[in-house]
Design a protein around this nucleic acid. Structure first.
Lengths: 220, 220
DNA sequence: TAGATTGTTAATCGATTAACAATC
DNA sequence: TAGATTGTTAATCGATTAACAATC
């Protein structure tokens, strides 16, 4: 049984570095802005000036996914924008549930940027009777006891955790058991789940601490 | 037991790489957890197992700031915890104002993690008469017109921007003019300010897009 | 065509990991 | 002491930048 776990990758399927992936949404945002300003074409040089990165990096990054440009011309803004949307999976139905309907959960549910990019909040969950039954931006807040039932009946792609850390750990395990494959974690804790569960952490405390570091070190 | 004082290091001129700085808050969090569990000492090897990083990286990272450990012993948890707090500037008075008292602004104001780490929300600002005058977790929501007056009278270290992007750009300029040196930006836009203004971005849309990418690419 | 700009290879730079002498 | 583990140097790995031939 030695080959059981062999992580085979289809020949030619390229592994993209995390550094590149993290930059894609920013390209996407700039291209969206250009598109809304009716800009038809842009060169890597011009984009590099706007974005404060090197033109070389832009070309290298994009060429991980394909040759989207044209020599002597640059890139067609609309075409490149759409290609990046495909790469990021924004054309799929990306249904999200939010566990924890406090201020942060509600803030996410009300965030129009997500909706504009193909993410749909299809429900929130909480234990607090005061918020259960409430509608937030069209999505209902359900009793957490109905989590299993709800997931069975819907195509849930992502679960956002906006909960205190102890409940977050507990619910994360429950979600993994239910087969949810991606967790967007806002709790200040690292979730240890089976490795096929995809986790994206937003650690606000860590973010503000790096800011504090920079203030502090610039004052010395 | 012998004394664990750090080796002295010529005052503050070493440039620390961003990669290292980003990891410090996570060390701090793990050490805090250990401390609350009454763990007295820990070796880089043991910590590396808990944190899923290499022991080598831990030692390299810490040695950017000083020799906090002891051969044959490891690191004293409480001592290291306090040293990292100093490095991160968490012992300073870190006053924060929040511009935008919507769900996200209120979520930040209610976040107890910040308070526990030396960050104080001393006021929120908004244009909406419905929230002006409200108190959130002890902090008042002021009319945005009183921003100048407030900053003149308080030691504001950080301004968090939880606003739509157009207002965020406008207010960021105003804050820079008022001498605020650090901005914690939640708006989906890059702020172009004088380079002495420290900016930390939290781009939630970009975060969820990288999650989407990973879901999408794992399904292929 | 002539100029512009890509796609891609090569060179450089930076970050991580390995190794081990120092030393508690 | 002997074993353990750091601090630090050296080796490796990965990411960024530079350069330029291909080509629109």
């Amino acid at each position: 049984m030695s080959d059981l776990k062999a992580k085979e990758r289809p020949a030619g399927e390229k592994v993209i570095s995390p550094a590149v992936i993290k930059r894609l949404p920013r390209y996407y945002r700039y291209l969206g802005d250009l598109l809304r300003n009716d800009v038809v074409r842009i060169s890597s040089k011009e984009l590099s000036r706007k974005m404060n990165v090197t033109a070389s990096q832009i070309r290298q990054d994009l060429n991980n996914f394909g040759g989207f440009g044209q020599q002597g011309y640059g890139y067609n803004v609309e075409y490149l924008y759409n290609e990046i949307a495909k790469i990021l999976g924004l054309n799929d139905r990306n249904n999200i549930i939010i566990i924890g309907a406090g201020n942060l959960g509600q803030a996410l549910a009300n965030n129009s940027d997500f909706i504009h990019n193909g993410f749909n909040i299809i429900g929130l969950f909480d234990v607090n009777p005061k918020v259960i039954g409430k509608k937030i931006n069209g999505a209902e807040v359900y009793d957490i006891d109905r989590l299993e039932e709800f997931i069975a009946g819907h195509d849930v792609k992502i679960a956002a955790l906006t909960l205190p850390k102890n409940s977050a750990v507990r619910i994360a395990g429950r979600l993994a058991d239910l087969g949810v494959k991606a967790i967007w974690n806002f709790a200040p804790v690292d979730l240890n789940l089976p490795e096929d569960v995809i986790i994206e952490n937003v650690h606000l405390s860590e973010s503000i601490m790096t800011l504090s570091y920079r203030i502090h070190s610039s004052e010395i």
